[in-house]
Design a protein around this nucleic acid. Structure first.
Length: 267
DNA sequence: ATGACTGTCTTTGACAGA
C-alpha cells in the first residue's frame, strides 16, 4: 500500500502534475490540500478516467482538501463532527475530509486529508485560531475514534515540529510554523496515539523538507521546512516500510511550493 | 550569472501563503 500527501497550491494550475504523479507513483491513496476551488468545481473527470475515486471539500479561491482513492469509500466525513465547538471553526469543512475504506488488510481503514490554518503573524488572532484548530483536531479524534483504530492523518500541518525540520533553527525561532506554541500543539495532537512516519524511519536526519519559499532561490539552497506530515496509529506502524519526500515535483516548471510526501506499507 | 514569488478575486492592485 502506498499513500501520499501533497499541498498543490491550486488544483487548476497543478491538474496535469497531479495526473503525472498518479501515473508515475500510482499511490493507493492521495491526499491533496489547497485545491482553492468550490467542492463541486474540482476537476473530477481526468482522475476518475485513470481509476481513482475522488472526494473533495473546498471553498471559492481558498483552502480545499481532497482524497483520491483506488478503492471506493464506504463513507465520507467533512469537517469537525461531534466536537465541543464545531461552530467556532467555520472553515473546518474546507480543511478536513475523511473517508472510510475497506482493504489493505483492514475491515475499516480511516484516511484523512487536513489543511491546518497558516496562522499569519505569531500572537495574532489568526495565530490562536491555528492553535485552537490543532486542539480541536485532537478532540475530533478523541471523541470519534480510538488510537487502536487504523487511521492515516496526512496533510499540510503548517508546523515544523523540531529544529531538524527547518533549515536554520536559530534564524527561524519564533517564526510562523516554528513557534513554541505551534510545536507544542502538534505534539499534543500526536499524543492521541499518532506516529510521525518520517521520524519513525529517519529519526535524526536533517535537511528533509516538504516546503520551500518561492522567493530567494530557497529550493536551490534547500532552505525549507518540513510542514507536511503523514501520521498513523499503532495498527499501521508495524507495516510501515518507507517514507520519503518526492522532491522531483518541486523542481518542475510551475511547481507547487510544497513537494509530495510518500509512505509505503507492507500489505 | 550579480539572480524580480505565485496563487486568488464580481481583479487591473491587494492579500494570503509560510
Amino acid at each position: 500500500m502506498v499513500v501520499a500527501t501533497w499541498n498543490v497550491n491550486s488544483i487548476k494550475v497543478r491538474k496535469d502534475q497531479v495526473l503525472e504523479f498518479l501515473r508515475e507513483v500510482g499511490p493507493d491513496l492521495l491526499a491533496l490540500q489547497e485545491t482553492k476551488l468550490k467542492t463541486e468545481d474540482f476537476p473530477f473527470q481526468p482522475y476518475q478516467e485513470i481509476g481513482y475515486r475522488v472526494v473533495h471539500s473546498g471553498g471559492k479561491g481558498r483552502n480545499g482538501v481532497a482524497l483520491l482513492s483506488k478503492v471506493a469509500p464506504k463513507s465520507i466525513k467533512r469537517g469537525f463532527e461531534n466536537t465541543s465547538e464545531p461552530d467556532s471553526f467555520p472553515d473546518s469543512e474546507e480543511r478536513l475530509i475523511g473517508i472510510e475504506v475497506e482493504g489493505f488488510g483492514f475491515a475499516s481503514l480511516l484516511v484523512f486529508s487536513v489543511y491546518i490554518p497558516n496562522g499569519g503573524q505569531p500572537e495574532s488572532d489568526y495565530y490562536y485560531y491555528k492553535i485552537s484548530f490543532l486542539w480541536q483536531l485532537k478532540e475530533f479524534f478523541e471523541k470519534n475514534f480510538s488510537p487502536e483504530d487504523p487511521i492515516i492523518l496526512m496533510g499540510d500541518f503548517n508546523v515544523a515540529p523540531e529544529k531538524e525540520d527547518v533549515f536554520d533553527s536559530v534564524l527561524l525561532e519564533g517564526h510562523i510554523c516554528f513557534t513554541e506554541k505551534e510545536r507544542k500543539a502538534f505534539f499534543d495532537l500526536l499524543s492521541f496515539g499518532f506516529y510521525d512516519t518520517l521520524r519513525e524511519k529517519h529519526p535524526k536526519d536533517k535537511g528533509i523538507f516538504t516546503w520551500w519559499d518561492y522567493q530567494f532561490g530557497a529550493f536551490k539552497k534547500n532552505h525549507g521546512m518540513r510542514l507536511d506530515h503523514i501520521l498513523i496509529t499503532k495498527p499501521l506502524l508495524e507495516r510501515l516500510e518507507e517514507v520519503y519526500v518526492e522532491k522531483r515535483f518541486r523542481a518542475k516548471p510551475k511547481p507547487s511550493d510544497h513537494a509530495p510526501v510518500i509512505a509505503k506499507f507492507l500489505v
